[in-house]
């Protein structure tokens, strides 16, 4: 059971790290996309949405190749941090960020497209700086979308399997997340523990989605 708790904690740590770091990337990316007018915009949007339709093992395979020290991303990482990305927690975070990118970008993109930018113009005439405009106007007006982006990224990372298996393997305490521990139990025919983890994931996913729907209903009622 101790190893299952380790997997639970690792999964939560991975999901939290991925969600927060992805928000930092997705926010400027979604803002830029919402304002970008270019014939190539569709291609960029397709590229970001690719993890939605691509088999996770395909994505995991390419990430594994990119993480190897013989390729540029792997070399850069090794040069900067003196460690390797493949089969490490850092590698899982990077992989999860790529895998969950559309779940973070799409709600934020929708938020920034539907935002009435005249509110920003008013706040500018009131003397708010660019940061103050973002904090005091954009964030509150787009709050439901921010929560959805954060919630979906978190839930999606908790449930991921193919990508983490490809780039992280199955190292207890380092890369063995919940879904892989579950797979491990099934392979060793330990169905009791498999049931426990599977039911736990099911309840978590259901509760998470219910909370998101509830929050969005509140947001739209205001």
């Amino acid at each position: 059971m101790d190893s299952d708790w380790t997997a639970v904690l690792l999964t939560l740590r991975l999901a939290a790290t991925t969600s927060l770091m992805l928000m930092l990337v997705a926010l400027p990316l979604a803002w830029w996309l919402a304002h970008w007018r270019h014939p190539l915009k569709n291609l960029v949007q397709s590229l970001i949405a690719l993890p939605l339709v691509l088999p996770p093992t395909v994505l995991g395979f390419y990430l594994l190749v990119a993480f190897s020290p013989s390729h540029l991303p792997g070399q850069l990482w090794a040069g900067l941090f003196d460690s390797q990305l493949a089969f490490s927690f850092s590698g899982l975070v990077v992989g999860s960020m790529v895998y969950s990118l559309p779940f973070a970008v799409q709600p934020l993109y929708t938020a920034f497209v539907q935002l009435d930018y005249r509110y920003l113009e008013v706040s500018k005439t009131l003397g708010l700086s660019a940061f103050a405009r973002f904090r005091r106007v954009v964030v509150p007006l787009c709050r439901p979308y921010f929560v959805v982006a954060l919630g979906l990224t978190f839930a999606h990372t908790v449930g991921e399997f193919g990508v983490v298996l490809m780039i992280g393997g199955n190292i207890p305490g380092q890369t063995q997340v919940l879904s892989i521990a579950l797979y491990d139990h099934v392979e060793s025919l330990d169905y009791d523990r498999a049931h426990l983890l599977a039911f736990g994931l099911l309840v978590f996913s259901f509760v998470m989605l219910s909370l998101l729907y509830r929050f969005n209903r509140k947001g739209s009622a205001e």
């Binding site: 009435d116 113009e121 008013v122 005439t125 009131l126 106007v137 509150p140 709050r143 205001e222």
Partner: peptide, 15 residues
């Protein structure tokens, strides 16, 4: 500081 008041007010709806 140049203040501008729009026809529809544009009060911040979250406040």
């Amino acid at each position: 500081r140049v203040g501008l008041v729009f026809q529809d007010g544009l009060l911040f709806p979250h406040l």
